[in-house]
């Protein structure tokens, strides 16, 4: 039973660490399906995390924090949109610029406003998204096997966790069952055809990057006011890039994206748990090896041992109306 509880704890940790990856990857899904590559997920998430931490501390409300995070993140998405849609700039270069601007300005503004070396002050109570116990979690807990799964893995997360997992079917529905989704996918494959049908390519792509901004904002808020209690310098720690890798690994489809993020989350949970613990038969692994593991596995998975990932055909190509 003891090893079963270990499994439950790992599953619980997996859910927690997968959430920012999942939100960021779904964010990237909207943008990339519309033909706008977005390497700036990382920066938008970081800016969102800072905005959430700062606004939640100042206002004392987690919801205000979330709202400000979304606004800031959308604003940065629009910068990326202006550069890559209106001015037909290089989308990768624009995304990299967003990452640097976010990384630098969060620290500079954090230091200027709060004088804590670029951190935001810790928040608690209503300024943070607390864990929610689902109905009956305590009643079911004693039941073997099922009880711990329900009360530890499914129940007891913050509201953003449930939102993130509900976004998976919702995104699927939007992309594959609505007119907006059909057009969004079409504009990523063949913008000229969409244009011929009398639909604005630019406006569609702008709406897609706004969706990206909303979700990266939520992901950022999760980092600073749900998972942690304050913003810390560079706290996104490459998650935006891993989310991008998950997106490619999942071939730009919502449900596989969730599974890929859970896989990366699981690896992360394992590496956190087994840092510096001796494994039977292998001996003690260096902590740095475990820290590098998610990054190494990202490369291994991206190396395409799962079949070739074919990106949206018009991805990364600015649309020119007249030739």
């Amino acid at each position: 039973m003891n090893s079963y509880m270990v499994l439950i704890q790992i599953a619980d940790a997996t859910v927690r660490v997968s959430v920012p990856l999942l939100l960021a990857a779904l964010a990237g899904l909207y943008s990339e399906r519309s033909g706008i590559f977005d390497i700036g997920l990382e920066g938008k998430m970081l800016a969102g995390a800072f905005a959430a931490g700062a606004a939640a501390y100042v206002s004392g409300s987690a919801w205000v924090g979330l709202g400000v995070a979304i606004i800031v993140s959308i604003a940065m998405s629009l910068v990326h949109g202006v550069a890559s849609i209106s001015y037909r700039g290089n989308q990768i270069v624009s995304g990299v610029a967003i990452n640097f601007i976010a990384s630098g300005s969060t620290v500079i503004l954090g230091q200027a406003w709060f004088q804590q070396g670029g951190r935001t002050p810790s928040v608690s109570g209503a300024a943070r998204f607390g864990d929610i116990a689902l109905p009956g979690a305590n009643a079911i807990r004693p039941i073997p096997i099922v009880g711990p799964i329900y009360s530890n893995v499914i129940s007891g997360h913050s509201i953003i966790v449930y939102f993130a997992f509900l976004m998976v079917p919702f995104t699927w529905w939007v992309l594959f069952r609505t007119r907006f989704g059909l057009r969004l996918r079409a504009v990523g494959e063949n913008p000229a055809a969409v244009d011929t049908a009398g639909i604005s390519v630019a406006w569609l792509r702008y709406r897609a990057v706004i969706c990206t901004g909303i979700l990266t904002g939520v992901a950022g808020a999760y980092l600073s006011i749900a998972q942690q209690a304050s913003f810390v310098k560079d706290m996104s720690a490459g998650r935006g890039f891993i989310a991008l890798a998950a997106l490619i690994f999942a071939k730009w489809k919502p449900v596989p994206v969730m599974l890929a993020c859970l896989l990366f989350g699981f690896l992360d949970a394992i590496s956190i748990r087994y840092q510096g613990i001796a494994l039977p038969g292998i001996g003690k692994l260096p902590a740095q090896l475990m820290q590098a593991l998610p990054y190494v596995l990202t490369c291994v998975l991206l190396a395409g041992f799962i079949g070739k990932a074919i990106p949206p055909r018009a991805g990364g190509v600015p649309y020119v109306k007249e030739r």
């Binding site: 910068v79 202006v82 550069a83 890559s84 001015y87 037909r88 700039g89 290089n90 989308q91 270069v93 624009s94 990299v96 610029a97 967003i98 990452n99 640097f100 601007i101 976010a102 990384s103 630098g104 300005s105 620290v107 500079i108 230091q111 200027a112 670029g118």
Partner: peptide, 25 residues
């Protein structure tokens, strides 16, 4: 003291944005 070395990271990002992504603006 408000303007630490991280300011350079911002300038870096802005140069990449304006000289790179928005070069045709």
């Amino acid at each position: 003291p408000e303007i630490s070395r991280d300011m350079i990271v911002i300038i870096q990002g802005l140069v990449i944005l304006f000289a790179g992504a928005l070069e045709h603006m």
